[in-house]
Amino acid sequence: MNALRSAVALTVSALCCAGCGADVEPHITASNPVVGAVPGDSAAVYVELENSGGDDALIGATCDCDAEISLHVTEDLDGISIMTGADRLDVPTGSTLELDPGGSHLMVQDLQSPLTAGSTIDITLHFERSEDLSVTVPVVPLEDLAERIEN
């Protein structure tokens, strides 16, 4: 009987929580943005997106650097690193979406000129529900990114 009561309570609270996530306005802040000083024409932007409001999703990004940006998820499967395109990256209520080296990232393609350490690029993040979010991304030496990888 107690177990049944607990199960009902859990279900009710889960439904409430799901409802809250969808009803409440999302509130997303970006921190620790960074991109490597790649000599080539493909790079990856990493950033942490914290959502203290209702559910949302990152659905795209644009850049002032005259390059295409797409969402990618990288996973390690059977010893190889597989990168696949994504239409959206969920940022549920109360969560932080961490875009990190070797994981999900914003892939910057067709860069017209190499990124130089010490400079910045401006990107705009597009969300399913939130307003666009402008982020200034510092360009750092590639070896600094290795420091962000958790082994």
Partner: peptide, 18 residues
């Protein structure tokens, strides 16, 4: 591969710095 945005640049750039 050269279109690699994530793994290869960090690996090669870090080795070169070292």
């Amino acid at each position: 591969y050269t279109n690699c945005p994530d793994i290869c640049p960090i690996s090669l750039g870090t080795l070169k710095a070292a």
